[in-house]
Computed example of a mutant assay.
Amino acid sequence: MVSVSGLLNLVPAVLIWVMTFKSCLSQYGDNSTAMNYSEYNYSFVDYDDFPALCVKESNRQFRLWFMSTFYSIICFLGLLGNLLVILTYFYFKRLKTMTDVYLLNLSFADLLFALTLPFWAANSMAEWVLGLLVCKSMHAIYKVSFYSSMLLLCFISVDRYFAISKAVSAHRHRSQAVFFSKVSSAVIWIMAMIFSIPDMMYTTINNKTCTPYSSSSDQLRVGIQASQIVLAFALPLLVMSVCYSSIVQTLCQARNFERNKAIKVILAVVAVFLVCQVPYNLVLFWTTLVTAQGGTEDCHYENRLLYATDVTQCVAFLRCCLNPFVYAFIGVKFRNDLLKLLKDFGCMSQEQFFRYTCGRRRSSVANDTETTTTFSP
């Protein structure tokens, strides 16, 4: 029989053996876990499945100096030119023809466009901190002015077509022309607001940037960009091509010296439109196709598209400061009124006024009519 003292001596030995066995099991389990973790990390993970982050720091640095400089120049010239046009029209009460009404509305549209440029510059340079309301307002005003100016350019070309190619019928309805131009201008502004509804609704602050797009592969972006290409480029280009082609044919049949000057003005109008709008719309069309296909995984290619979009967009924005010179300042009557305005405000002496106006008055008598405002040399 085992004595009580023998049992007491056996208990410590059993406890030591249990603790030793548990330690071995724990050590084996830790090694197993470490081995499995090691194998999981280095053997079973395919890092190609994780998307690589596209670094766009160079594009941000480019926008920091390029967009701010370009936007500042366009904003200054756009405000100066369009304010002079608006001031001249109201000072001399020159709303006598359809073209006068359309040019005044075009100046207001371009002026609104120029006023949004400082906000666009701020959005491209730093994080957007002005809130959602200002963000939506910026895009809404920009789109309304953008679409209205493009539609006004269409109506100006149509008015010039009737005034030159259909001069007899245009003179017959001359008394109703100004009223029709005011009504059609109101319709243009309403249509521009309707076309801008998607931007008003979907514009938001994404990744600390004010944008109407949730991502570079957003399908909503495809619809907005496609509608912009059609309404703000394809439609004006088609209307202007038809109208100005007919005008050039009519002027070529005329046998006077002034027809050559008028044709040069038409070519200048078309050239400015094409140079400003074609590059941007081609890039916009290509980016729309890339977005419709789900975007691109080539970071270098995506950065090049961003560079092309930024540069061509700035060139397209030039139209808001070039329109006053092409559509208003180039006309004889408007140019003389502008010089008279500067003289009345004390910015020009009487001698300088006569020097700039009397030398050109004789050569421009034939074209100094109310129906040739745009194409007068």
Rank of each mutant, 00 (worst) to 15 (best):
Y280Q: 12
C210H: 03
V222T: 08
F21K: 11
L152T: 15
M200V: 10
V144K: 00
C135M: 05
F329D: 01
K264T: 06
F119N: 01
V275Y: 11
E370F: 13
Y161H: 11
T209W: 04
E370C: 11
S181G: 04
Y356V: 07
L289M: 11
G294L: 11
F317T: 03
L152N: 04
Q249S: 14
S68Q: 10
Q219I: 13
S217Q: 10
A140C: 14
F353V: 03
C24A: 12
V168C: 05
P212M: 07
V270N: 03
A163S: 15
G29Q: 12
R319N: 07
R63V: 01
A163P: 02
V85D: 05
E302G: 12
Y102S: 06
M125F: 09
T312Y: 09
S5K: 14
T203V: 10
L103D: 08
M191W: 10
Y147A: 10
Q225L: 15
T372F: 13
D344W: 11
Y142A: 14
N9A: 15
V315P: 01
I190M: 10
L106R: 02
V270P: 00
V332D: 06
S376E: 03
S217E: 09
C252V: 04
F354S: 10
V332Q: 07
G131H: 04
G346W: 06
D159P: 00
A170K: 01
F334P: 01
R259D: 05
L132P: 04
F179L: 14
S72P: 00
S26T: 12
Y301H: 11
I263N: 02
M348A: 07
F179K: 14
K22M: 15
V275P: 03
V230L: 05
V332F: 15
V178H: 02
L289S: 07
F354K: 07
K22C: 13
S363E: 14
K166N: 09
R335K: 14
S72Y: 08
L339R: 05
V230P: 00
F345P: 01
L132H: 05
I330R: 09
T371S: 15
S145C: 09
S107W: 01
R360K: 06
A316R: 02
Y244K: 00
M150A: 15
N105V: 06
V14E: 08
D30I: 13
M193I: 14
L282E: 01
I86A: 12
S175H: 10
Q277T: 09
P236T: 05
L77K: 08
V265G: 03
S241V: 09
V283Q: 02
L84H: 06
S181M: 08
A366S: 11
V144Q: 01
L282K: 01
M240T: 03
T287I: 15
L87S: 13
S3E: 11
V18A: 06
R94T: 12
A226I: 02
S137F: 14
S181C: 07
Y89A: 13
F195G: 02
E258Q: 11
I266S: 01
I266G: 02
K340V: 08
S169V: 10
R319F: 15
